[in-house]
Design a protein around this nucleic acid. Sequence first.
DNA 1: TATGAGGGCGCC
DNA 2: AAACGGCGCCCTCATA
Length: 497
Amino acid sequence: MTGFNLKEKFKELLKIGKKLPAEYFDLGVAFWLLNPDEEEYSADFLSKKYLHKECNSSAKGSTETHPKPLELKQLYEVASKKLKEYKLEKLFYDVEMPLLSVLADMESTGIKVNVKNLKEIDKELEKKLTGLVKSIYKEAGETFNINSPKQLGKILFEKLKISLGGVKKTRGGSVSTNIETLLTIQGRHAIVKYILEYRELFKLQSTYVGPLQELADKDKRIHTTYIQTGTSTGRLSSQNPNLQNIPSGGEWARKIRNAFIPEKSYLLASFDYSQIELRVLASLSGDPKMIEAFNNDLDIHRLTAANVFNVPLEKVTPDMRQLAKTLNFGVVYGMGARAFSKASGLSIVEAQRFIEEYFNDFKKIKEWQEEIKMQARTSGYVMNLNGRRRWLLQAASMFRSEAAEAERAAINMPVQGLAADIIKIAMVKLSSEIKKLKWENKVRMLLTIHDELLFEIDGHIIKEAGAFIRKIMESAYELEVPIKVNVKIGKNWGELE
DNA sequence: TATGAGGGCGCC
DNA sequence: AAACGGCGCCCTCATA
């Protein structure tokens, strides 16, 4: 079978109990592998671009357009030839295509939520919000739309005349009212703390608690859609609803996660790859210190702290470790002194010193990053270990900021992209092993959240299945360092141990 | 009424 | 806010 949106077709087949085709070729996914930064991966768009056809212009609106068989054939010819040319066949046929049906399964299964519970949280939030709105209007001396940054800015800085010291402008030139700003002016007026809490609670209610109730089906299950062509690095994205950004820290977040539950007599189990991106970075760069740290299962942030502060491991304080953690994360993203100073609270000069010290201690990481940047500049693309490719023609741009942006993307993609491959490979392997064991109904893969898999598992086999899943995830890929998976189990998503 | 930009913020 | 990578969704507001 060849076509577009095969995942949707497969979900239809699953619904009516039909068998999926043994061989299939999703054109959207194929063109995404060839260039993950296309504007879209529709038949129309790709026909126009690669076959020099005009759009299948049935006005806009109504139903999705159905490409003609001939166009499909032609697009297939182009895609399969290019996949071979760019050595992407293995990734396509062994990872992305098998993954497509795994995703169809996961989406069809969905995850159960306690709608009653959500409703209660909704009520609670409503009550809190009503009180906050009252307090805010009282402090402001008038009513206004708190959700409007424009109106809020007027109230704060014109009506209440809160000092603008340390307050930044937005890109559009207006005064910012973001959290950063609110925190800096918090001591200057009583209204600010109400607004901070209002922002937090309104976000939770409008983005999560409300929509999640609406999206539950008759079995109280929520079905996200994974977008296989949704990122430039190889990750998946999740939409309608996005189940990859459910709140995780804090009291309200816990309440929301508590509402994600297993079916009766099942348990939820999460399996998350420990420090997967740093392990990948250690492996790719071959940095001896970092590799040794992971080989000895050391606390990587503590090890980093000991190095950048030049103290023995046991002399590392929590503050030092926190700073090192920020540094480790930042390095993966190509963070500069400015961003690090912002994230750490250090001065830019101090921040710069720490970054230099970091790269002095982990020289191979610096070298690896320089190589990747060079590759991007000279060839116009970067690749990860599996040949996953991202075109970055801007790396050679004469505009420094544009080139720098591309360079940051260049050093991040091979790391984020390999981590993405690893979990994808694990998912495919898991799915086939679960089928082999005839565990389809006892072990259900529900969510994939970048470095984490969430399962719903029959309580009777939880131990066995947990060990089994962990094993497969840890052995899905061979790096220069061990891959470690943390397992947590519980009666809901908010209380896993 | 529909759309898109802007501001903002949730996650890994 | 971003000289910190990758996402999706909410609301407002101007414009079509």
